[in-house]
């Protein structure tokens, strides 16, 4: 029994069957990659996991509880954090403030009317945020406006924000899309370090095979909205079905 169990999930947009009969089991503390050609339904599947979309059929269970019909913030409070394709951070706030917000969300829950105490009095939150910034090697940027940072730094910050919530499952949507080679390698190293040092499960949607094969210990190949194979990386590499899905019949 995995930490995330997807059973018979189907989703239709008008005449397009985006997902059908998707079954997926993500084991605890693994790095599970979901790959597939463009239009395979990877992003739709991800959106079904975080509450942005509700599948037409099937069930999605996280740690024994259904996530269907819950709002994104409720699913996040259950322990699923999401990293977006283009980094979603609080651009108008400083890097330190960015890091404090998930700490507040972890401590106080989805809403807390804490309108009279000063932010600077929240020693535990400040300490945790500073600690996380150091871990992400961003302590020197703490008073910078988050929007002014490079793409790679924004990604690092976003991952740090997700980690400071101590999630049990980290979902990443093409975390290296549009990145330079050096930034991509940095991100790979960071994710490797995270999965080695922490008690965390990572599910990653990715296009870049270099990233997938350097990180994943389990891979699901999605094609035309349905899983083709689920296997270990070395078996996926040589699988003729996967080649066919990626390169077409003639190959």
């Amino acid at each position: 029994m995995g930490i995330l169990e997807v059973k018979d999930v189907g989703k239709r947009f008008g005449g397009l069957q985006a997902l059908s009969d998707v079954n997926l089991s993500v084991k605890e503390n693994s790095v599970h990659a979901i790959i597939g050609p463009n239009g395979a339904g990877k992003s739709t599947l991800l959106n079904c996991l975080v509450g942005k979309l509700i599948p037409d059929t099937g069930s999605v269970m996280f740690d024994g509880q259904s996530v269907l019909g819950r709002a994104p913030y409720e699913i996040n409070q259950m322990g699923i954090s999401r990293v977006f394709q283009t980094p979603e951070i609080f651009g108008d706030l400083t890097v330190l403030e960015n890091m404090m917000i998930p700490c507040f969300a972890k401590r106080d829950g989805a809403f807390e009317l804490n309108a009279l105490s000063s932010v600077l009095r929240q020693k535990d939150i400040l300490q945790k945020a500073e600690h996380m910034l150091e871990e992400m090697n961003m302590a020197d940027k703490r008073h910078m406006h988050a929007a002014a940072m490079s793409r790679g730094d924004k990604r690092r910050l976003e991952i740090g924000m997700c980690l400071s919530q101590e999630p049990r499952l980290l979902l990443l949507d093409e975390p290296t899309a549009g990145m330079a080679r050096a930034d991509t390698n940095n991100t790979i190293d960071l994710l490797k370090q995270i999965s080695d040092e922490r008690d965390i499960t990572i599910a990653i949607i990715e296009h870049d095979m270099h990233v997938v094969f350097s990180l994943a210990n389990r891979i699901t190949v999605l094609a035309q909205g349905t899983p083709l194979v689920e296997d270990d990386p070395q078996n996926i590499r040589g699988n003729p079905k996967v080649r066919e899905a990626y390169l077409g019949e003639s190959a």
Partner: peptide
């Protein structure tokens, strides 16, 4: 968007 995916309503 980030608020919602950070567990905040």
């Amino acid at each position: 968007q980030r608020m919602n995916y950070t567990g905040l309503n």
